[in-house]
């Protein structure tokens, strides 16, 4: 059945007003200066901040890889559990997400502080205190913790559709566990992986609140620098937009690179 095109109108209007127009504004701001005349200065000024940009991307990549390494076996276990256990496990996964993102990050602050819960517990057995917060590890931990469900859910929803008989067939034909994962499960869950990677990478690369709260302002990411242009002392939306634009282009490039490699996989199937 062909859905009437008119059904898409509400969404098209929505996208136009809240995606296309703002994007246009970002480009517009990035290409102009305070007086409104066209300039590329903002884009060039951006090169000063390349190291932060790279750091953000690196952190986001690390967080994404860790998420993938944790989520892949986890989703597989969930998808092979009995129906009732599956729904329990998924609910358990979702429960933390009912609590606001900021509050969860705050909770990590109280856990990781020098006088925090973890250090106090370690103190009881005579260890520490360790410096757990205000470093890059804490920032990556925050990203992994906050965005892990975005990796597990798409993976799980794809894996749950893998027919058990395919896995059994592979085993019957003598494939060992590693080969089973590499040749059967991995290719079949590729669509879930590519959705999950995007869902984790994109918010990680642009986050500013995690780095501020868990990085203690000493591990600023590109998101912090962009935010500073809008609400910092030198109000400069032009430079801020230029940064956002460069970030967007780099992320788009990386996503397309990744997708290419994902879609190839689809072809094999």
């Amino acid at each position: 059945m062909k859905a009437p095109k008119s059904l898409a109108i509400p969404y098209a209007v929505w996208v136009l007003i809240f995606t296309v127009v703002p994007l246009g504004l970002v480009v517009g701001f990035a290409m102009t200066d305070q007086d409104g005349s066209l300039t590329l200065e903002n884009i060039f000024a951006m090169s000063e901040y390349m190291s932060v940009l790279f750091r953000s991307i690196l952190f986001a990549i690390i967080a994404t890889v860790i998420c993938l390494l944790i989520a892949f076996p986890a989703s597989y276990i969930i998808s092979r559990a009995s129906a009732i256990n599956q729904s329990t496990l998924v609910v358990l996964l979702m429960v933390p997400m009912w609590i606001n993102f900021l509050l969860r990050t705050y909770a990590w602050m109280t856990l990781l502080e020098q006088n925090g819960l973890i250090n106090r517990l370690l103190g009881l057995i005579g260890l520490g205190p360790y410096n757990l917060i205000n470093n890059s590890g804490a920032v990556i931990l925050g990203m992994v913790y906050n965005y892990l469900p975005f990796m597990i859910l798409p993976l799980y929803s794809v894996m749950v559709k893998i027919d058990q008989s395919i896995i059994e067939a592979a085993q019957d034909l003598g494939s060992n566990k590693l080969r089973l994962v590499r040749k059967v499960i991995l290719p079949l869950s590729m669509p879930g992986i590519s959705t999950g990677v995007i869902a984790v990478f994109v918010p990680s690369v642009s986050t500013f609140i995690i780095s501020r709260m868990l990085g203690g302002g000493t591990n600023d990411l590109i998101g912090d620098i962009i935010e500073m242009q809008f609400s910092g002392n030198s109000y400069n939306p032009h430079l801020g937009s230029a940064m956002a634009l460069v970030l967007m282009i780099i992320v788009l490039f990386m996503m397309s690179l990744f997708n290419q490699f994902g879609s190839e996989e689809d072809v094999i199937l």
Binding site: S51, I225, M228, G232
Partner: peptide, 14 residues
């Protein structure tokens, strides 16, 4: 001042 501040905040980047 903003530039100096950003440099200060950022340049510990390895």
């Amino acid at each position: 001042m903003q530039t100096l501040w950003t440099q200060l905040k950022v340049d510990n980047s390895n």
